[in-house]
Amino acid sequence: MIKVMRLNNKAAKFWFKKILWRHLVGLAVGAFSLFPLVWMISAAFDVTGQISTQQLIPLHRGLDNFQQLFSSTGKPYLTWGRNSLVVAFSAAAMQVVIGALAAYSLSRHRFKGRRFTLTTILIVQMFPQLLAATTLFLIINTFGKSFAFLGLGHQLPLILIFGGAALGVNTWMLKSFFDTLPTEIDEAAKIDGAGHFEIFLKIIIPLATPVFVVTFLLSLIGILNEYLITSVILGLDSKNMTVAVGLQQFIYGQYGKNWGPFTAGALIATIPVMALFIFLQKHLVSGLVSGSTKG
């Protein structure tokens, strides 16, 4: 403190007084937010494979964990990865398409029951699907008795279940974006003889592409993060699992916690998601923030 007072340079004084502590806070909070990631990386390259006893910079470094990850019998990591991609991409696409259709109509058409629909969607959003996990399990079980491919252990019912959440997840966000697009363009197109579907296809969709990217990503991450319904529907057969559900077998296995391959697999799964997130953070942040400021 005394040192600071002695400095007569005004800019430096300002820096010490107003800027330095902000950097310190930033670094401390940054350390907090990176904490598990750093240890995930460290454990993934530590050949002893113990998250609990390890050092930040492992003493014995190597790729053994990755080898073990890809060669474990009964734990097909690549299959889990493919399952995750299939489920997440198809369900997210479904959520965006269904949400966009509904949002277009709610934004552009005036009809009886419109307010009711919007309110209902808002309330339904408050009842997360996972509350009904028990009954979804029983329903999909019934499905399976009539149509094997729609039963437990299959991906299609899971995709449909997430698709069923589409209205609650995306509609409001998309609608508030569509509301910002000037209706004059629609009117002009209408005069030129365009039908409502043509307007949607040729005017709204091209203009809204950035917001579709954001909703798609948010849906994708939401689905990849979902645990309860995924594990209940896909069941206990290892080859049906997704990465998130399957990787757990390494740490809840009968031979004790095997952190090495778990963290290796988690790291591989995290990198693409994180890269997408950071790459598109400007859009994501503006999407979330506009959600907050527009109410």
């Binding site: 930033g26 909070v29 940054g30 937010s33 990176l34 904490f35 598990p36 990631l37 240890w39 995930m40 454990a43 998250i51 609990s52 991450i221 990849l224 993060n225 645990y227 990465v243 998130a244 559900v245 990787l247 757990q248 740490i251 916690k257 952190w259 778990f262 963290t263 988690a266 799964a269 995290t270 998601v273 994180m274 997130f277 950071i278 953070q281 942040v285």
Partner: peptide, 23 residues
């Protein structure tokens, strides 16, 4: 700093929570 702060949102939470449980 903003990028640092949003890292937790970018890690699939199922995996990060399990890492936490080890820590």
């Amino acid at each position: 700093y903003r990028t640092l702060f949003i890292i937790p949102m970018a890690i699939p939470s199922v995996l990060s929570v399990l890492v936490w449980s080890g820590l």
